[in-house]
Design a protein around this nucleic acid. Sequence first.
DNA 1: AAACTTAGCGTATTAAATACGTTAAGTATT
DNA 2: AATACTTAACGTATTTAATACGCTAAGTTT
Lengths: 238, 238
Amino acid sequence: MNVRLNPHVSVDCVIFGFDGQSLKVLLIDRNYDIPPEKLTKPLTLKLPGSMVYDDEDVDTAATRVLKELTGLENIFLKQFHVFGSPDRLKKEEDLIWLQAETHMKIKRVVTIAYYSLIKIHKTTPSDGRVVWLDAMNLPELAFDHNNIIQVGLQTLQKEIQHEPIELFELLPKKFTIRQLQTLYELILGKKLDNRNFRKSVSRSGYIVPVNEKERNVAHKPAQYYRFSHSRYLKNQKL
Amino acid sequence: MNVRLNPHVSVDCVIFGFDGQSLKVLLIDRNYDIPPEKLTKPLTLKLPGSMVYDDEDVDTAATRVLKELTGLENIFLKQFHVFGSPDRLKKEEDLIWLQAETHMKIKRVVTIAYYSLIKIHKTTPSDGRVVWLDAMNLPELAFDHNNIIQVGLQTLQKEIQHEPIELFELLPKKFTIRQLQTLYELILGKKLDNRNFRKSVSRSGYIVPVNEKERNVAHKPAQYYRFSHSRYLKNQKL
DNA sequence: AAACTTAGCGTATTAAATACGTTAAGTATT
DNA sequence: AATACTTAACGTATTTAATACGCTAAGTTT
């Protein structure tokens, strides 16, 4: 029999947000309570996550983490990959922190990664532990969390090609075509032609204008649009 | 602290094969060694799987299962979902079997599911424990394995829409357009127009004819084709 | 020789993607 | 008050892909 120990199972959430300019990721400072003079390493940022509790579905665990951190429920959340290499905890300070945090002699953790898309302004007033950082330009994070975010981003890139619906989770209810295009460009990592982009928007059939325009901008004010879920469903059926 | 127990972690492989007529799944009979008169329940078929060993990456565990079962290495294998509901083991006979098999007091198993695509004729002469069954018409399997296969099939359906390359893992090196179309139709679950299908094949640029035709068929013999990986890569770059 | 079966080419129509020119409506600058 | 500046928004022409459907070709079976 080759099985003796048993890896612990956790969930980690890559929570994306969009502030109109850049794509952000929500991170927490795991050493927030520790006085700065006691800190030796700068690796204090990590993805929000948790061990999976007894009698708790893994998806439920991810939902719980999201709720605890942002106060939000009914949020878009998608499992995208399991990170289960035995040397995920190879950095010594990661192992020390984990064992202190959980009060367990943990040797190995298999983590199930989720990504979530939320409107930044909806987050509850931050408690100081959480920060939004630019997803494209992150410092070194704890564990393999840089890698997890990168894979999450690649997954998101793929998804929006055939499920653009997910994108609207990141935008406010009313948004301009320019905002939508900026978001596409950020995630896809390339520039799009604005004129053709508008055409594909009007072709979509489910992005509809609302009776309101931008105000106080130093150029022609843009029309606001919204995502129509009912029209989206109709087009899918055909 | 809410964590006390710790779920066990396993991998399960949904191994798809194609015999020219229908899509098959490889299953194993977990009660193969047990004399029939001692069997109470007919739920003896399950997906090939294994607990994840210490110091073994989860992907490695899945590769190992595949190797042990089919003798094959360097096979297409893709993680697609984690099944982690606490009541996955709700059928009593499943729990009994699992505890006997592992000699452990297991209460809960979180399993990471993979799917794999192989050419049926490549499997080593079956050892009696393994069977290929029609993926679309399965009996009730152990655990939640019917559900796992269904989700795997849905994933495969989505994947082949933008990564048709995976399909060629299921076909022999030389295949006819009809075979390719049949495979598409099986996985997508709908009929396609043969004339338009041929057009999309020739448009693809990476399905090229070989210098050989069908023989001994009661109709016009079909041209054999092969998948050209180099041409596939060239087209992707554009 | 005729019937049968699947292979394989063609044509016409519609829809989607791409490239690029131009005008419109505001604010800021002089 | 006129001009410059900036982003919004519409249009046209071309290419490429998707869909619908007609027809011929090359074998075997009866």
